[in-house]
Design a protein around this nucleic acid. Structure first.
Lengths: 221, 221
DNA sequence: TTAATAGTGTCTGTGAGACATTATGGT
DNA sequence: ACCATAATGTCTCACAGACACTATTAA
């Protein structure tokens, strides 16, 4: 129960109108075609938008993100990160709505898509793919999410856990190249990442060329 | 006027209780003693806290920050940056309150302090200085603000505009040392910062030793 | 045997760190 | 003349980039 409280204007806290608070999430993944993609769902208006929902009473933002992805896109098992609050008063025609943008990373195979409800769009070709611009500044959110993801992948091996273990350095590098959407130097990549990986005694098999050693993500640091 | 809208649970948007949204700001500065300090104001309960306020209807978060600093601490002329949303449901005993943490940087001389209302506390000695822990997770906010400020000062010369122009490389380095709270190597500092500064034809005077060239912050990049 | 890929060794250029040397003011 | 500080020159070491060379498998 709120405790009565007067601010500097001597109005009760509960007197003020309050904004609705929504969460919108850019779910990023790497497609089998090695492209960085984002999950979009159909909006009520018929177009496409990022999955989102309104925050329920007493709910954590993270829990609202997980709930929205489960209900709207059938996605589970996530670790969302907060990006930014979008607060333009006129950004949403449903009223005064603040949106807290989030980023999440999910393996492509975990995104069992119902094509009528959800789809994965390559971030590089977002505008060309969409019939109409995304509402509510969602394009800004995707841009911020991609920038954040690239910053994380530039430092650590697959922090989003997109690659099933064990994996080779080559497959890890191809994943990172998809995230960065540019070629990475094999030498520099190996020097940066190999110390952060746990080696196994196994090697890859079934392909031409010398079999590659298999690694797992590092146990400690 | 909000447009009626039914979500997946078939409840009207306006049916849901909404959270109060507050802004809390860590105003950082460097004191004449070359310490990194944060502005605290007296709370209604008698202790100390970060200056903050509730978001008014239709107001931008940035404007709420500026209003709070003006009203509660007499500070003007700011460029706040958003840091993070704190959403623990029980963090505020006045009810369901989300707090959007902000960072701002202000020259020490612009903080005309009324000692009964506001004070500057060295961030390094925060816990030792305070009679009681800060409420509402404000210590977390300060830690995040200091980390963000240090990241910015590691890259660019005085992005917060704390130093009056023109200035010498030595005084700029002493400022950056105060922000980082560690010694910086003069050689590396000069090599990183001098290309980002605009030289003037003047030199410092009135001190012992060879006069130093004076610089201004870079015009472009 | 050849093609293809994995993995290693090594050369080079750049830049950080360290420090010596010169420049130029005040005392 | 001497001291203090600014400014410059240069040596060394670490590392990124580049590339040659070896290793190991499938076809």
């Amino acid at each position: 129960m709120p405790i009565p409280y007067r601010d500097s204007s001597d109005r009760l806290l509960t007197d003020y109108p309050r904004p609705s608070v929504a969460v919108d999430t850019a779910v990023l993944t790497v497609t089998p075609e090695a492209e960085l993609g984002v999950l979009l769902v159909r909006s009520e208006a018929g177009g496409w938008r990022l999955p989102g929902t309104f925050l329920h009473p007493g709910e954590r933002l993270v829990d609202a993100v997980i709930r929205a992805l489960d209900v709207k896109a059938g996605v589970r098992g996530l670790a969302p990160r907060q990006l930014h609050v979008f607060d333009e008063p006129d950004r949403d025609d449903r009223g005064w709505v603040l949106s807290v943008a989030h980023l999440d990373v999910v393996p492509f195979d975990s995104l069992a898509q119902d094509p009528d409800r959800a789809t994965i769009v390559p971030t590089a070709a977002l505008e060309a793919w969409l019939p109409a611009p995304l509402p509510y500044g969602h394009a800004q959110i995707i841009a911020a999410a991609v920038a954040e993801l690239r910053a994380e992948y530039a430092e650590r091996p697959d922090p989003g856990g997109l690659l099933p273990e064990p994996f080779t350095l080559s497959s890890l590098r191809r994943l990172h190249e998809a995230v960065a959407s540019r070629r990475l130097l094999p030498d520099s990549f190996r020097r940066l990442m190999q110390p952060q990986l746990a080696p196994t005694d196994d090697v890859s098999e079934g392909s031409v060329g010398k079999p590659a050693r298999l690694f797992r993500r590092a146990p400690a640091a």
